[in-house]
Amino acid sequence: MSGRVIVITSGKGGVGKTTSTANIGTALAKNGAKVAMVDTDIGLRNLDLLMGLENRIVYTLVDYLNEKCKLHQALVKDKKNPNLALLAAAQTSDKTAVSPEQMKDICNKLKEDFDFVLVDCPAGIEQGFQNAIAGANEAIIVTTPEMAAVRDADRIIGLLEASEEILNYKLVLNRVRPKMIQANNMLSVNDVTDILSVKLLGVIPEDENIIISTNKGEPIVNMENTKAGTAYNNIAKRILGEEVDIPDFEAPPPTFVERIKNLFLTPACSK
């Protein structure tokens, strides 16, 4: 078996890389895929927190590299889904503890046993970034409709294009506020994809439930009927090759009159 290795990156910090990794990973596993998530943010690990696995980590990526354990020992199984595993970053080392060659080696080993290897990349474009992309063939760029995040995403796209290993990359636009877009006070989905000239993988609307899910250590895709959870589930389906439409966040919501019109028109049309 040879799985797909996807790096989740953004350039700027705090745009939702780790949240996206946790949710896309969980959603892929829920769809039946075997998934390994690798946290490469050495020294500032957080993926274990979002997954609620912080108390189960015995060995880390750096322990494996220092031959203190076997790779399967360092992989922590998810609480709910046996198809999902996490390789945590070391909290006490720094980014120089890993080299791109070592990361490549880990990814190659993991993709023998897993359908998907999701690499959570640290912020920045220095060695941590180079490590994270070393073993990957695909990339997901996470950004928000804010100027600084878009600018950094553009820089990342430039670096990904220069990399020979990354064969394709797509964009996830996070924290979209439909109302602000409709009031022309936020860059729209089309604005961002135009500026970056990049293909869109999904759009995540701003959702307070994300904070609740982080507090609980439970990815939002496990919460029923949340806007962000549904969006992440759809992203997982798209990665698996299913065609799921991206909802239009730019169109103003139907007015009261339109809604009443629809109410009368729909049964008439269905006849």
Partner: peptide, 15 residues
């Protein structure tokens, strides 16, 4: 006013 147009133009220039 449409502040997103500001953002878009400034971004285009800086990029």
């Amino acid at each position: 006013y449409d502040s997103k147009d500001d953002a878009k133009n400034r971004l285009k220039l800086v990029l």
